[in-house]
Nucleic acid binder design. Sequence first.
RNA 1: UGGGGUGUCGCCAAGCGGCAAGGCACCGGGUUUUGAUCCCGGCAUUCGGAGGUUCGAAUCCUCCCACCCCAGCCA
Length: 554
Amino acid sequence: MESTSPSNFLHAIIARDLASGRVSEVVTRFPPEPNGYLHVGHAKSICLNFGLAQAFGGRCNLRFDDTNPGKESPEYVASIQEDVRWLGFEWSGPVRYASAYFQQFYDWAVHLVEQGHAYVCDLDAEQAREYRGTLTQPGRNSPCRERPVRENLDLLARMKAGEFDDGSRVLRAKIDMASPNMNLRDPILYRIRKLAHHQTGSDWCIYPTYDFAHGQEDAIEGITHSICTLEFEDHRPLYDWLLEHLPVPSRPRQYEFGRLNLNYTVTSKRKLGQLVDEGVVDGWDDPRLPTISGMRRRGFTPRAIRRFCDMIGVTRSDGVVDVAMLEHAIRDDLNENAPRAMCVLRPLKVVLTDYPADRTDWLTAPNHPTRAELGQRTLPFTRELYIDADDFREAASKKFKRLVLGKRVRLRNACVIEADEVVMGGDGAVAEVRAHTIADTIGKDPADGSKPRGVIHWVSATGGRRARVRLYDRLFHHQAPDRGENDFMALVNPDSLQLVSDAWIEPSLAEALPEQNFQFEREGYFVADRYEHSAEAPVFNRTIGLRDTWNDGP
RNA sequence: UGGGGUGUCGCCAAGCGGCAAGGCACCGGGUUUUGAUCCCGGCAUUCGGAGGUUCGAAUCCUCCCACCCCAGCCA
């Protein structure tokens, strides 16, 4: 796989650390909590962590930060691994789990207590909040703060033994209740949760907090550069404090970067989960969601997502990336690599009156306009064809470069035809167009030197196949559905999915493999559905439309 | 009104004292059996603002302004 890893400030830091000998090898990690599916924001982190390790010949671990059993599940640990692999990355060694280090964390907690750096606190959640003070006022010491070491040790052991109820006691670090950094006001290290854990079962009833776990996990695994998002910057002093006060095997350092924000979309596990739970979308892998599995089902390729991550860069400023950049990344990849094919979304019958009903010509068409190595396929050409209803008008201005009554148009990969008359249906709409072919125009212009201004796609009515096509649109029309006062659930686009049950495809398309990408010429990029597509009942999802700069006329 | 951050084109982003890369978007023009692609051209005398240092500043100093994060026994 190509290892693009464009330079950024982290790249520079690592290069410097390697050059100075501060570290001899770079070791990073991607540390998701298995409490939801990965989304495009995680893709940025994955590309960053794995990409940096790759760029410097180091290693990158996949580690589940599973310290809160109440929110986690095995379904997520499975999907996360699948998504990371699908994106094209392989972690170093086995999958790691914070939960595998629980005993070590506990021993270290005991160590902290013995050194007088931690104590068991009896304040309940509400009292703890009061004692913590506010952003502008210092907190007050807990009445338990000066508890003797011996008593703390006893209480901690009993917390572990399950003698106390959830929430009744916690273990806290003894740092500084007056610190302007809230994270240093005697942060909680352990809480009681009488809950089974998806990895450790009922072994524990006390679980470490993120702060008491993350740095130590990094130290145990020999992580050299622990990369996280900006909101953890205030936690860095605590991260360092714990490492300094514990006999850890290595000294990782934390660095922060700005998380990805995309306009017109929501990227937060909580909100994505709400859309899934309330049935607004069909599941975590709904093609309208910016989840990795959703984008996969939509037809995005790992390469396009990686390319997108390279395009947006990595900095410490938090901005909002225009989805147009994501759309460009996928169009760019698919334009280069997707085979072309023809599909009519709104079939309008065209009868070629000068063409025998019992005749079929098999025309060959290249699978790609510039890459001959992608081969060609054959198309059945018959008396009855379907073209898209939008590609015909009884009358139109010169700007309309498609089929018009009495005028000519080129059928893509086939001949030129001229529309003679229209047959109206009972509903007053055009039901059929009757036309005739212009002799000897396959692969060449008409003998009279005229050149049709337009080219439209078509599919044989008798040789083609019916298909179901799903046309996706943005889930939100609002640029910032979850910003400020906005209730993102109320801003969902009710027409984000349009089901087309009678699209018409050229026969070769029925043989498509699930997840195969195509460009349906003049329409956009589509993918055979990962789960529902079959030769008997073809199903395609529109990944993204073609760029369209045509300003519609009259 | 505490602490921690960030401010370079509509968006992302290079730049680190020597005179504003690149990408996306957009606007022209050319090619084209996809109104796609491709090609060519345009797009910041200016770097949040005001002072200062310097021959010279987006880059150094001072003050100011705006925005983001922190008061979960979430991560």
